[in-house]
């Protein structure tokens, strides 16, 4: 009887201890979310009287070609970061987690370095590198006999997003590398040795033995990467401001412009809600399919 009472008290105490976190979440997330949903149904400039428009903002949003352009650009950026950031990060992590590599700590620090620099700084540096008038890329192309001045990566609607994506990937691979190194360090080396004794080559050992062991980490990195890529803002702002001709328009910049440049808080909120729904949907679908843990 006394034991049961003690158990009940522990449960009550558990709920009591949860209250601050729940309150914090309710005020700073729940309330904001509800408010954003409310705003998304208003025609409101953020200052004067608002008018209720129901789903009007959403209807307009889905017929706005710039919104879709921003959405597609975000997908392009995400795929690019997976290619230029996550994959190289995974490969480097595997190499640098091998015990026979000398100077591993130095390499890890050097590769991680871009991640600690502000996007404003590396954005400006890469902008100079891409500068067709006197940038590094021009010098290199000229060095090999090409016409470095004839090509403007961020000035061309076809290549501007690629330029930003490469820059983003450069900052991202070091971050992925650090996470993957920690995962590789926790793998069972004996399994790899056993696979090799059974005649598996390096690729087969990596693909069939090592990689499955870090699958939960890969899932986490992939979900994080997609969410992070849809939140990118400062890099685009510094490098192209969404131009030329909306070629590098992305969701967050689009939302900011609608809300703060055009004073369309309702419309901007609707775009933010759609972005939030997309990211939640992606996470749920991914975890239910590709990211599902095998028991």
């Amino acid at each position: 009887m006394r034991k049961k009472s003690l158990y009940r008290n522990q449960i009550i105490m558990g709920y009591v201890l949860l209250i601050p976190a729940v309150l914090f979440f309710a005020v700073f997330f729940g309330y904001s979310l509800v408010q954003a949903i409310h705003y998304s149904m208003l025609d409101w400039d953020g200052v004067t009287k608002a008018a209720f428009v129901g789903l009007g903002n959403y209807r307009e949003l889905f017929t706005d070609p710039v919104f879709w352009k921003a959405f597609v650009n975000n997908i392009f950026y995400t795929i690019g970061i997976l290619a230029f950031g996550v994959l190289p990060g995974l490969a480097l992590a595997y190499i640098l987690s091998r015990p026979y590599i000398k100077g591993r700590t130095l390499f890890r620090s050097v590769y991680f370095f871009p991640r600690i620099i502000s996007a404003v700084v590396y954005g400006a540096v890469w902008k100079w590198m891409y500068d067709p008038r006197n940038g590094l890329l021009r010098l290199i192309i000229n060095l090999f006999g090409g016409d470095g001045g004839g090509f403007a990566i961020t000035g061309n609607v076809k290549t501007a997003m690629l330029g930003i994506t490469i820059t983003g990937g450069w900052t991202y691979f070091g971050f992925c590398m650090v996470i993957f190194i920690a995962a590789f360090m926790g793998t069972n080396m004996e399994l790899e040795e056993a696979a090799k004794l059974d005649g598996a080559n390096n690729w087969q050992t990596f693909h069939r033995v090592t990689l499955p062991q870090i699958r939960p980490v890969i899932n986490m990195v992939l979900v994080y990467t997609v969410i992070d890529c849809f939140k990118v803002y400062d890099l685009v702002l510094v490098m192209t401001s969404g131009g030329p001709n909306d070629a590098t328009q992305i969701m967050t910049y689009y939302i900011y412009k609608q809300a703060f440049t055009f004073n369309r808080f309702g419309y901007g909120s609707a775009a933010a809600i759609v972005l939030g729904i997309f990211m939640v949907a992606f996470t749920v679908i991914y975890n239910a399919t590709l990211g599902k843990e095998e028991l």
Binding site: N156, G243, P244, N245, T261, F262
Partner: peptide
Amino acid sequence: GTNAFDFFSEAGQKLAIGA
């Protein structure tokens, strides 16, 4: 106004790339 301001903020670049 805000929309015209945005147009003229980018119009030069659009002229430069032939858009």
